[in-house]
Structure formats: structure tokens, C-alpha cells
């Protein structure tokens, strides 16, 4: 029982606000919803490795491509997850990764396009067993 209390009492340092602040430092501006598709399980039994796929609609040409993709999560000890950077050589903007999730939380992605526009998508993942070693 002691261990359980310890898990419950451990504060998650990241909040939706700190996640948003981090996104602002990564990509300044107000992102519009759309163009970004975020695939993640609705319920993740094991928070140690939650498969996440992010794709961005883009022709990936020299003139029009995705420059960066930032991913944050608002329920982990720290909000940052990863930032990815692309060049037109990629041909297609899609990345698959596995994320640790300490608890049920929302993950947010913001894509930074070569024309400076920002697009975002968000999704909540319910986590049955948290994945930060607790």
C-alpha cells in the first residue's frame, strides 16, 4: 500500500499550461488545427511504450515542406517528448515512435511548415499502468 500511495502522491510536473509554454518556445505562434494526423491508442495498457504515429499532409517539395514537428505531453514529469526535423528528401512527413506516459494525458503535436504556418493535432491517451518507473 505504501508503494501505491507513493505513486499517487508523486506530482506530475507537466501541466497543460507548461506543455503549451514549451510549444511556444519550440514554435512561436498560434497553430491552426488540421493537416496533422496523430495516431495513438485510445487506451494504453502499458505506459512504458505507447506507439504514436504522426503524419503531416505536405507535398514535401523544396517550396512547400514540413520543417519541424514538435511533440509534447502534458502529464509526464517533463512536457517535452521529441522534436523532429525534415528536409524535402524525406518525401513524406510521417514518423513513428514509442512514448513513455506516466498517466492518462493528452499529447499535442505542432508542425512547422516551410511557409511559416503552424498546424496542430492533439489526442488523449488513457494509460492503465504508468511508464515512468514508479
Amino acid at each position: 500500500a505504501a508503494a501505491l500511495t507513493a505513486i499517487a502522491a508523486r506530482p506530475a510536473a507537466a501541466t497543460p499550461e507548461t506543455a503549451k509554454q514549451l510549444l511556444q518556445t519550440l514554435a512561436k505562434g498560434e497553430p491552426k488545427e488540421g493537416r496533422v494526423t496523430l495516431k495513438a491508442p485510445e487506451i494504453a495498457e502499458n505506459g512504458n511504450a505507447v506507439p504514436v504515429t504522426v503524419s503531416v499532409e505536405s507535398p514535401m517539395t523544396d517550396k512547400d515542406h514540413v520543417k519541424a514537428l514538435h511533440i509534447v505531453a502534458d502529464g509526464n514529469p517533463n512536457p517535452g517528448v521529441a522534436s523532429f526535423f525534415f528536409t524535402p528528401l524525406a518525401g513524406k512527413c510521417e514518423v513513428q515512435l514509442r512514448v513513455r506516459m506516466a498517466q492518462t494525458q493528452k499529447i499535442v503535436c505542432v508542425a512547422e511548415m516551410s511557409d511559416g504556418t503552424l498546424w496542430s493535432a492533439a489526442r488523449e491517451v488513457k494509460v492503465t499502468i504508468g511508464g515512468c518507473g514508479g
Binding site: 517535452g80 517528448v81 521529441a82 526535423f85 525534415f86 528528401l89 524525406a90 518525401g91 515512435l97 513513455r100
Partner: peptide, 27 residues
């Protein structure tokens, strides 16, 4: 990089799972 030209890169935080798996595309 592909033939020395950058294709894809990433900055990873501790929120990435152990044995980091990443998939991406290259033309």
C-alpha cells in the same frame, strides 16, 4: 543523411521509451 545530405533528425527527451524505435521516410 542520405549521400551526405540531411533527411531527418530528431531531438529526443526522456519521454521516449527505452530502446528508442523511430520510423520515418526517405525518397
Amino acid at each position: 543523411t542520405y549521400n551526405g545530405k540531411p533527411v531527418f533528425s530528431g531531438k529526443l527527451e526522456p519521454a521516449i521509451s527505452a530502446n528508442p524505435y523511430l520510423s520515418f521516410f526517405v525518397k
